[in-house]
């Protein structure tokens, strides 16, 4: 039972092919097989949002996604946000604003922010808070994170480089 199946997909722009078991989650494959440990397992049941990655451009709980569900898809993890040594707009804003404390929720927060900024030109505070409502942070009290996303949106609107 549960024989290996070939999973072919794209992770952070690179084609990946590997044999997985049916019951492996996307999070397990990313962290344990591909050693992309940026995505975190917090609760493991879809509540905390720390494992959030983008699959075909949409946020997904990697802990509640079977790896095989991403067959043929494109996955973006926190490791794929920066361009070499240059941080992405969201990452730079998180660092500058102090939106990172222990950092455990940060990868999920960054990808949710990335998703929001890719869909909305200039999200207001309510939209930012709504987007981040699927993510739990136990350190910051959220204010700095909301500020960081607003800063990233603002910079992009002004066409500033990060």
């Amino acid at each position: 039972m549960a024989k290996l199946q070939t999973l072919a997909f794209e992770v952070n722009g690179e084609a990946v092919e590997l044999a997985v078991r049916s019951q492996e989650t996307l999070l397990e494959v990313l962290r344990e097989r591909l050693e992309l440990t940026g995505s975190k397992e917090g609760c493991g049941e879809g509540v905390c949002g720390a494992c959030t990655v983008l699959v075909d451009g949409a946020p997904r709980r990697a802990c509640l996604t079977l790896a095989l569900e991403a067959q043929g898809g494109q996955v973006l993890t926190v490791e794929g946000l920066a361009d070499g040594a240059e941080l992405s707009l969201e990452q730079q804003a998180f660092v500058e604003t102090g939106a990172v404390q222990c950092g455990f929720c940060t990868p999920g927060m960054l990808l949710a922010s990335h998703d929001l900024l890719s869909r909305q030109e200039q999200p207001d505070e309510a939209a930012i808070r709504q987007q981040l409502s699927g993510h739990i942070c136990r350190c910051t009290g959220y204010a700095k994170i909301v500020e960081a996303v607003a800063l990233a949106a603002d910079r992009r609107a002004k066409g500033e480089a990060s």
């Binding site: 039972m1 549960a2 049916s22 019951q23 397990e28 049941e45 079977l66 095989l68």
Partner: peptide
């Protein structure tokens, strides 16, 4: 938390 083994079909 790990999932117990199962078969996977995608008709």
């Amino acid at each position: 938390m790990r999932l117990a083994p199962f078969e996977y079909l995608a008709p």
